[in-house]
Design a protein around this nucleic acid. Structure first.
Lengths: 194, 194
DNA sequence: GTCTATATGGCGATAGAC
DNA sequence: GTCTATCGCCATATAGAC
C-alpha cells in the first residue's frame, strides 16, 4: 500500500473520530508513522487532504446494493433486502457512516449537492422506483426517506436507546431492526392500497 | 442577564455550530464581548464550560409536551399531536438539537445514560404508554423509537434530501412531515390490529 | 468581575538537505 | 519521498493590577 493510500485510509478513521479541526496534521503524521512534511508532499493542505479522504471513503459503496436490485425477487422482498443491506453497510463501515454524519451536520449546501448527486443518487433512484411500484399513490420521496431515516436512526442512536425502558438486547441485532422497519413500511403501504 | 448566563447561552450556539475543538476561547470571548480571562473567572477550564453549557441548554425542555399528554384527545390524536410537537421543538431550537446530535455522535456510554435518564426519560415513557395503548401486541420500544427517528431524520437531513429527485417544497413544512409520519405509524399499527 | 500582559505549547505550513 | 528544523500564529490557561 502506498503512503498516500495509507494516509487517506487513516485520515478517514481519525477525521470520523475527531472531526476536521479535532485532528491535527501532527497526530495524523504520527498515526501513519511519517513526518508532517511527508504528508504535505502528497497533499497541498489540510482541507484538500480532507476532501480527498471523504471521496476515497465514498468510492467503493456503489455496488453493495447491486445484487438486491438485480435479484429476481418480488418488489416487497427487494425492499426488505435493501433495508437489510443498508443496515449491514452502516454497521460494517462505521467510519464512513460517521464521516457522513459530520458532513450532513455541517450542512454546507454545495457539499450536500455533491453528496446527493455524486454519491447516493443511484441508490436513491432505485429505492424511489421500488416504492412507486409498491404504492403508486403515495409520495415516493417521503416514503423512501423514511426508510433511510429509520435505518440510520437505529444505528446511530443505539447507545442512547439502550438506556430507555423497554429496550431488549435483540434490538441491536441487524435482522431484528431490518424486520421491524420492513414491517412498518410495508404494512403502512398496504393500508392505503387495500 | 449575568455574564455567566450570557457566556453559557452564546457557548451553546457556537459549540453547536463549530463543535468542541472548533470553538476557541478567544472566539467565545469576542462573541460575548469579554476578555478570555473574564471567562476563566467563571469557569475552571474549557471542558467544564462545555459541560455546563450542555446542561444549561437541557434545563427548560420538560413541559413543552405536557399539553399534548394532558389533552382530552384520543390516543391516535395524541400521537399525532406529539409528533407535531416533536418536529416543532426540533425546528425551533436548532442549537439544542445540534448539540444533542454531537453528544449522540460521541456516544460516550456514561453521557448517554445521563441524557436518557436525566433528560428524555419522561417523554419517552409517555410515548411508550401511548404506543402500548394503540397496539398492545407490538414491541413498543421499537415503535416509539421509530417515531422519534423519523422526525429527527427529516429535520436534520433536509439540506441533503432537497437534492434528491422527487423532492417538493412542501416537504419542509412541519405539518406535512408530521402528517406523513403519523400516517405511516398509525397505518402500520392498524394492519396488525385489524 | 474584569482587565492587560504573558507563559507555554501546539497548530498549519515551508525550506532545504538527503 | 522523506527527513529535520523552523517560521509565525493562535491555542489554553495564568498572574497580578484595578
Amino acid at each position: 500500500m502506498s503512503s498516500k493510500e495509507k494516509i487517506l485510509g487513516t485520515a478517514i478513521v481519525l477525521f470520523a473520530q475527531k472531526g476536521y479541526s479535532g485532528l491535527s496534521m501532527r497526530q495524523l503524521a504520527q498515526a501513519v508513522d511519517l513526518s508532517v512534511a511527508a504528508i504535505y508532499h502528497h497533499f497541498p493542505d489540510k482541507n484538500a487532504l480532507y476532501l480527498e479522504a471523504v471521496r476515497f471513503a465514498f468510492s467503493d459503496k456503489e455496488q453493495v446494493f447491486a445484487q438486491v436490485w438485480e435479484s429476481g425477487c418480488s418488489a416487497e422482498e427487494k425492499l426488505g433486502g435493501f433495508i437489510r443491506s443498508l443496515i449491514d453497510v452502516m454497521l460494517q463501515d462505521r467510519d464512513f457512516h460517521r464521516l457522513m454524519q459530520r458532513e450532513i451536520q455541517e450542512a454546507d449546501p454545495e457539499r450536500m449537492q455533491l453528496l446527493a448527486q455524486g454519491v447516493f443518487n443511484r441508490q436513491f433512484c432505485f429505492l424511489l422506483q421500488l416504492v412507486t411500484e409498491l404504492a403508486p399513490e403515495q409520495d415516493a420521496h417521503l416514503v423512501a426517506t423514511s426508510v433511510i431515516g429509520l435505518a440510520k436512526y437505529y444505528i446511530e442512536c443505539q447507545p442512547l436507546l439502550k438506556n430507555f425502558p423497554g429496550w431488549k438486547s435483540e434490538h441491536e441485532r441487524p435482522e431484528v431492526i431490518a424486520a421491524h422497519i420492513t414491517n412498518l413500511v410495508i404494512n403502512s403501504l398496504k393500508v392505503k392500497t387495500a
